[in-house]
Design a protein around this nucleic acid. Structure first.
Lengths: 210, 210
DNA sequence: AATGATATGTGATAAATATCACCGACTATC
DNA sequence: GATAGTCGGTGATATTTATCACATATCATT
C-alpha cells in the first residue's frame, strides 16, 4: 500500500481521518499502459483516484467509435465513479490507461459515508465535478464549432501539455480519438508540417509551433 | 419574496436552516422569455436557482455561434454559477430564459459559507454538478458521433419532453441552437414530414412519431 | 537481404453540410 | 386589401469530411 506521506503529497489538504480511511479501505491497483479501466455501461463498483500515470477519458458511440474528452492526472479522480446514491450506477464513459498507472479503488459504499464524515472529501468531490465539467465544456466547444484542422490542433496542444513536444501517437490513434479517419489526420498533419508547425517521424512527430 | 412552503415544494429535502438562509439572503428575480441571463465571459456575481419556467444553457463559439446543451427546470440550478472558491470566476456558458421565469439569485459569498453550514446544500451542489455533467456527456455523444438528421431528432425529442408535442420554434431558431443553417434544418424537417414523423405549420410543428 | 507487418501518402470519388440566390407564402399592420 | 416583414422551399454550387483503392516507406524478424 501507499504511504500516508505519499498520499498527502498527491492529495493535499485532506483531513487526517480521510487519509486513514483511504489507507484502510482503498485498494492500490496497477494497470499497464493501454488497459481499459472502465467501459461504457459497466456497473461502477469503486471510485477511481489516480495516483501515478495518466488516464484518458472517452465517450463511446453506439457504433463503437471513441471520442477523447480529457486526461486524468495524479491527484485527480474520475467524476463518474464518485457515485453518491445508488448501487447500480452504470458508467457513461470509457477510461483507458495511457501510461502504466497506479490508482486507488474505493468501494462505492464509502462514497456516501465519507460525504457525511469528511468535509474535505465533500470538497474534493465538488472540485472534481467542477473541473471535469469545465473540461467537457471545452470539448463541446471544439466539437460543435470547429473544423477538423482546428480540432486536431487543439488535440495536439493538449497532448503536448501532458507529455511534452514529442507526440508519440500514430495517425490512426489520433484519428480514433477524434472519431475521424486516418487519411484525414495524415493530410492535416502534412499541412501542419508544410506550415512549419510540426516535424514528422514514424510513430511520432514534434510540435515546434510557438 | 417566495414563501417557505413554496420553496420546500420546489427544493425538497433541505435543512430548515437552509430555507431560512435562502429566504434571508437570496433575491427572487424575474425575467421575460428570451432574456439573456448569463453571457460567456461575464463575471459571476450570484448563483442562479430556477423557481419557475425554463432556462436554456448554451455554449458560445468565438464567432458568436450558439450551441444548445440542456434545459434547466424549476428546482434545478445553473452549475457554473455554484462557484465555491474565488470571486472572479467567469461564466463559461450562455443562459437564456425560454419562458418567463422566476429565479433565486444568491450572492456568491454565501456559496462557501453554506457549504460549511448546510449538509443539504452540499448535496444539492453535488447533485447539480452530477446531473449537468451527465447532460453534457449526452450532448457530446450526439455532437461527436451523429449526423445532423439524428442530432435534429434528438433535439426535437428533448424539446417535446420539455414542452409537449407541439414544437413552437422556427427553423431558424432550431438552426441557431444546433449551430447549422436554416436551409439544412428546413430540408431535414421536410424529410421528417415525408416520413410522417411531424406535421408542419408556420412557426411550429407537431411531433407525431411514436 | 528477404519477408511480412505496420505506418504513411495520395488520388479519386462519395456523402454531408454550408452557402448563395431567389422565390413564394403567410402575417401583421396600417 | 396593399404593403412590408418574416418564414419556409428549393436549386445550384462550394466546402468539408468520409471512404475506397493502392502505392510507398519504414521497421522487426529471420
Amino acid at each position: 500500500m501507499i504511504s500516508k506521506e505519499a498520499l498527502k503529497k498527491i492529495f493535499p489538504d485532506w483531513e487526517e481521518g480521510l487519509y486513514d480511511a483511504i489507507l484502510k479501505e482503498a485498494e492500490l491497483k496497477e494497470a499497464k499502459a493501454g488497459t481499459t479501466l472502465l467501459k461504457m455501461g459497466q456497473n461502477i463498483k469503486s471510485a477511481m483516484l489516480v495516483v501515478e500515470g495518466t488516464v484518458k477519458l472517452y465517450q463511446e458511440g453506439e457504433d463503437g467509435g471513441e471520442y477523447f474528452m480529457y486526461h486524468l492526472n495524479p491527484g485527480e479522480a474520475c467524476a463518474v465513479t464518485l457515485v453518491c446514491n445508488y448501487h447500480h450506477e452504470q458508467s457513461q464513459v470509457l477510461a483507458k490507461a495511457v501510461t502504466d498507472i497506479q490508482y486507488l479503488a474505493i468501494p462505492i459504499e464509502f462514497m456516501e459515508k465519507w460525504l457525511n464524515e469528511f468535509k474535505s472529501w465533500h470538497y474534493f468531490v465538488i472540485r472534481t465535478y467542477r473541473s471535469r465539467y469545465e473540461e467537457l465544456l471545452k470539448t463541446i466547444n471544439e466539437t460543435a464549432f470547429k473544423n477538423m484542422d482546428e480540432r486536431l490542433e487543439f488535440y495536439i496542444k493538449r497532448q503536448v501539455k501532458q507529455f511534452g513536444n514529442s507526440v508519440n501517437l500514430t495517425h490512426q490513434e489520433i484519428a480514433n480519438d477524434l472519431n475521424t479517419s486516418r487519411e484525414v489526420v495524415s493530410r492535416l498533419l502534412k499541412k501542419m508540417e508544410n506550415n512549419g508547425w510540426i516535424v514528422m517521424n514514424r510513430n511520432s512527430f514534434d510540435w515546434i509551433k510557438q
